[in-house]
Design a protein around this nucleic acid. Sequence first.
DNA 1: TAGAAAATGCAACGATGTTGCAAAATAAAA
DNA 2: TTTTATTTTGCAACATCGTTGCATTTTCTA
Lengths: 132, 132
Amino acid sequence: MNPSEYLSSYGVSRTAIREKLLSILSREDQALSSKEIEEKLGEDIDRVTLYRSIRLFEDKNIIHKIVIDDQTIKYKLINPKKGSTHPHFHCVECDKVLCLPETPLPQCNLPEGFSAKTQNTIVEGTCQKCNH
Amino acid sequence: MNPSEYLSSYGVSRTAIREKLLSILSREDQALSSKEIEEKLGEDIDRVTLYRSIRLFEDKNIIHKIVIDDQTIKYKLINPKKGSTHPHFHCVECDKVLCLPETPLPQCNLPEGFSAKTQNTIVEGTCQKCNH
DNA sequence: TAGAAAATGCAACGATGTTGCAAAATAAAA
DNA sequence: TTTTATTTTGCAACATCGTTGCATTTTCTA
């Protein structure tokens, strides 16, 4: 499916910036920060518009936000077949953030009276490449 | 153990602000944001000093930082007997953040070549009180 | 293709946290 | 205890990240 069709299938109108953003994200297997996206977009892009586009993509479930810590927030295109309810891996060496879609979310036992809706799991460690 | 002894046992010198901070945190079973701490400290405290004290406590392993999302970062006194390697619970109704020290951290299966050092798990849901 | 609706880009703002530095408080030594 | 050295504090200024208001431009719809 081409970018325009992809966007309209999510109810998002086609604009130059949104197609560029989609294109950048779809080329990556790793999650990107807004700063990294900004750098890939180059000079000719307004920061405000980028933030608005990212938020729109989030709201429309085109991407999901992965919060590693207060300094590290990354975005990843959602694979419609796999969703976004899986753990994420953060390499402390190269700072890559990857989805672990094949790993089921481990279950936690909650105290009496508590109920869980979603769960967020970040595994911190070193990736294949950084382990040589 | 009194506050002064507690601080010096962690190699932190005793000052008025640090004792107040320790006192506030030790009264809470829930984790507090820097804003919430600021409010409890009252008028007579400099923001900069508070941030520096929080960072110092983190560095000395007196407290740990729990990152829920980019807007919600909370701090909790570390119970030396229980450490800080357990899941956390975030109530989406009342916004409380609690430790789940009795719940072991669930294990994730990583792809070949990856190795895990630590893991961060936040369970999002509703707490006992908010479930009536 | 014309008009309505939505998106963009700019300037200004806001929240959160940091740095440099002089004054004050604490700890160590005499 | 008093003196001296080291830390900590509080202020002003700054940095980063993200948001809002609004006029202009672009996209969508009929």
